[in-house]
Structure formats: C-alpha cells, structure tokens
C-alpha cells in the first residue's frame, strides 16, 4: 500500500523542488506541466486504447481558443474557463471521432492530422473572432478560486497548472484501474476479441477519444489562461508530433511515462537548444533512438528492464 503512494509523492516533491531550484524559470516549468497534461491525454488515447493519432493538438487548440474566448466574452473565472476548454476539446473529439473511430492505422493517422489542419485553417479565417495569425489577445483571467491572482513572475500560474495536472493524473490513474480502463487495454490488445465478448469497439474507442479530447482541451485552456495568448501554433502538427515523441520516450500506457518523457524531452530541448540552437534536434533524435533500441517500453520501464536483466528473466534483452 505504501509503495503505491511513493511515486505520486516523489512527483509532488520534484515539483516543489523545481519551484525552489529554478525560481527564474517558472514560465518554462509551467510549460512543462501543461505539456504533461497534453501528453497524459495522449497516453489515454494511444497508450491505453491504442488509437493512433498525430492530431491531439486539434483538441488542445480548441480548448485554448474556447477558454480564451470564454474569458474575454463570458466569464474570467479560470476554473470555469477550464470547463469551457474541456468541453470544447471533448465536443471536437466526439464530432471528429464519430468518423475517425471507424478507421484504423494509416488512414486514421492521416485523418487526425487533417482535422488539426482544418481547425487551424478555420481559426486563421475567422480573424474577427480569433485574431487570425496575430493570435487571440486580451485574455485576462480572474483570480484562481477567487483567491490567487495571476502574477508577472508566474507563481500562481505554476501552482495552478500543477494542481490541475495532478488532478488529471489522479483521475487517469483511477480510470486506468477501472473496468473502462481495462476494456481500453483489451481493445488495444485485441479488438476482434472485444467484439466477440459483446463490446461495441467503435463506441468504446469513441468514448476514450472524447475523454482524451477533453483532457487535451484542459491543457489548451491552461495555456490560454497562463500565457494570456492563443496562437494558431496551438493546432500545429509539430505539437502533436512532439507530444507523441515525449510519450514514446517515457513509455506508453503507464501515466508516469507521460510525465517522465515530457520532463526529459523538454529539459533536453531547453539545454541543448540554448547551447547549440542549430543542432539540438540531433540530441533529441539520438535520445529517441537510444530509448527505442535499448528501452523499447520507454524510460518509465527502466526499473523493470533492469530487474529483468539482472535476474536473466525470459524477456531480458528482447
């Protein structure tokens, strides 16, 4: 029982330590935390349910624009803005998923990319509402829970994003152990057998995709509120692709992989890009290759892999 609470405790400790160790990098730390939320949403969709996607940014962008517009036109309350972002992400995922979840493999991947592109194009054209290529400006979120005001240094932003991330993590951890979570893993393992035990795989996948969309929308809403700006980049292909690389780096289907992968990717990116703005991609590339070759299940799997190696278990080195 105690062991189960160790990892979340370590995660919280690391977040608190980061706050005190890097007081001048709060904006960067906050970006990491928000990215973790997006990568967690991808872990639900891809890691649990096995839905291949390169368009998770579509729901992230939808959430960002929805939360931004909501704050400007309706209500500046941040938590209400999160709900707006989650709804936007979920609705977009449900609508697009109604078609997408009937497809698989390469077709599915291409369609997820297309959805994000279409969203970006719509946001670009609807200049009057979204600000087009200039981005959506003038977002002034109110106090968090009516108490904490967003400050210039980003202290409130960091703790707010961290609290939301931990909440999302906890919900996904519960979900992962639930019958629904088990059924998603079942679909990942064998859709044919799931149909044979009486499950509509289409509907179950749609539910997972919608939920993942809602969480990606929350991540987008956090960005909108904390940076107080939403750009067309929120829909970008490179964001979807980077989220995928972070997840693969950390390991899919185990939540901690999403956290580890994001932290490592963004830290390496940060340091490498500062030292060598032209070649940092090589560092990331080498890192990804190393993980894929030596730790195919991701970095979060390192302890298990080491244990197996030292015991000479039947899967060692496979």
């Amino acid at each position: 029982m105690a062991v189960r609470f160790l990892p979340p405790l370590l995660m919280l400790l690391a977040a608190v330590a980061a706050y005190f160790l890097f007081p001048y990098n709060l904006a960067f730390l906050t970006r990491i935390v928000i990215m973790v939320v997006l990568v967690l949403s991808l872990d639900l969709v891809l890691g649990f349910a096995g839905i291949a996607t390169l368009g998770q940014a579509a729901m992230y962008g939808a959430g960002a624009y929805a939360a931004g517009l909501f704050a400007i036109h309706v209500w500046a309350d941040p938590v209400a803005g999160l709900v707006a972002g989650a709804l936007a992400g979920a609705v977009l995922a449900a609508l697009s998923g109604a078609v997408l979840m009937r497809t698989q493999g390469l077709t599915l991947i291409m369609l997820t990319i297309a959805v994000a592109q279409i969203c970006a194009e719509i946001a670009n054209r609807a200049r009057g509402v979204t600000g087009g290529a200039d981005g959506l400006r003038g977002i002034r979120p109110g106090k968090v829970l009516g108490v904490w005001e967003f400050d210039f240094i980003g202290i409130t932003g960091y703790w707010y994003a961290l609290a939301v991330m931990l909440l999302v993590f906890a919900v996904l951890a519960i979900l992962g152990r639930s019958p629904f979570g088990l059924s998603l893993r079942g679909i990942h393992e064998s859709p044919a057998r799931m149909e044979a035990i009486g499950v509509s795989v289409y509907r179950r996948r749609l539910a997972a995709y919608t939920l993942g969309g809602g969480i990606a929308g929350i991540a987008g809403a956090l960005t909108a509120q904390i940076t107080q700006l939403v750009s067309l980049e929120t829909f970008s292909f490179s964001l979807s692709a980077e989220a995928l690389i972070m997840l693969i780096l950390g390991g899919t289907g185990r939540l901690y992989g999403a956290v580890l992968g994001t932290v490592i990717f963004m830290a390496v990116h940060h340091v490498a890009a500062a030292n060598d703005p032209f070649n940092w991609l090589f560092v990331i590339g080498a890192l990804v290759l190393a993980v894929v070759f030596f730790l195919p299940a991701g970095i979060a799997h390192l302890p298990t892999s080491l244990k197996r190696l030292s015991k000479g278990g039947r899967h060692a080195g496979s």
Binding site: L175, R177, S178, P179, F180, G181, L182, S183, V199, R204
Partner: peptide, 11 residues
C-alpha cells in the same frame, strides 16, 4: 454491463 464504469476498481 459494468464495462463502462470509470470510478471503481475493475477488481
């Protein structure tokens, strides 16, 4: 009919 339950343990 419990396959869609989200907030209880599968076991």
């Amino acid at each position: 009919g419990q396959g869609t339950r989200m907030f209880r343990r599968a076991s």
